Simulated scan of single mutants.
Amino acid sequence: MFEPSAPLILFIALTFLLAGFVKGVVGLGLPTIAVGLLGLSMPPLQAAALLIAPSVVTNIWQLTGGSRFTALLHRLWPMLLGIFIGTLAASWLLGSQPLHYATSVLGIALVAYALLGLGKVHFQVTPATEHWLAPVIGALTGAVTAVTGVFVIPSVPYLQALGLQKEELIQALGLSFMASTLALAISLMHSDTLQQGPLFGASLLALLPALGGMFLGQWLRQRISQERFRQWFFCGLLLLGANLALRF
């Protein structure tokens, strides 16, 4: 049972302020940072449930913040559909049984990808490859989401390999994370975690610091160059991957 106290509420607010700021700067990181820090003071399932409202609203803000929404949706819908199918299928197959070390392995893969990016090793997805690769990437991302609660692998490397510009990439990430969040919320409906009144209320209250942090992060992102953004993007992935890799 979730029993909020004043110190816990303050800790939740500061956690979502930081997570929202990172998301505002590089377009990702809110789930990983929030669940990672909240896991210090509550069960992982409660932390994931707290994440639902801030994640949904910040992703809506992120995916509607650019001018390419319709074009990106038309281009990415096979991947988004794959995310839904992969998340729900993996949740149904695995149930509540965790896969040990899955999150750590995911973190190692993310660190390796970030180091390649910082080393300016470029990956590119051609239009012909994108046609069949998008639903596969989506399904794999959904399966990883169901197992770890993290949305970034392999969708983030795939989107980055499409050669999108800074604001296009941010908007595409918002679309991907929105699909993952909704699919994860549906899978959590099988438990009674989301039905707890105090937990649902705390999730709504967490919106305020998350939105405040995201506003500050976006303000900073708009004042940096494409190359600086690229560097910060991969540094963010490196830190997120290291955080995941150190979990046991």
Rank of each mutant, 00 (worst) to 15 (best):
A49Y: 10
A102W: 01
W61L: 11
Q46R: 11
L63Q: 08
I85Y: 10
T103K: 13
A47T: 10
G36H: 05
L94K: 04
A47Q: 07
V35K: 02
L45V: 15
R75Q: 15
L94E: 03
L81D: 03
S104F: 00
T70C: 05
A102N: 02
G86R: 08
V56N: 01
W92L: 13
S91C: 09
A53N: 04
Q97C: 04
I83H: 01
T70N: 07
L38F: 04
L45E: 15
A49N: 05
A47R: 09
A53S: 11
L76E: 04
G36A: 12
S41R: 14
S41Q: 14
P43L: 12
H100A: 15
L37I: 14
A48F: 10
L50D: 04
V26F: 13
L50V: 07
L40Y: 14
A34D: 11
L94H: 12
P98D: 10
G82R: 05
T58H: 04
G86D: 05
G27Y: 14
A53Y: 00
L50K: 05
V57N: 00
L81Y: 02
S104I: 10
W77E: 00
P78R: 03
V25E: 05
G95E: 08
A47L: 10
T70A: 13
L72R: 01
G29P: 01
L88C: 06
G95F: 10
I33F: 06
A71M: 12
A48L: 15
I60H: 01
S104Q: 07
S91G: 09
A34C: 11
G36C: 10
L37C: 01
S96T: 14
V35N: 02
P78L: 06
I60P: 00
R68E: 15
I83N: 02
I83Y: 04
V26Q: 07
L50C: 02
R75T: 12
S104M: 06
V25C: 03
I33C: 08
A49H: 03
G29D: 11
A71W: 01
Q97A: 14
I52W: 02
T87D: 07
Y101T: 12
G95R: 06
T32F: 05
I33Y: 05
R68C: 09
G66N: 11
T103L: 15
A53K: 05
N59Y: 07
W92I: 10
L38E: 07
G82N: 09
M42H: 02
G29K: 12
T64Q: 07
T87L: 09
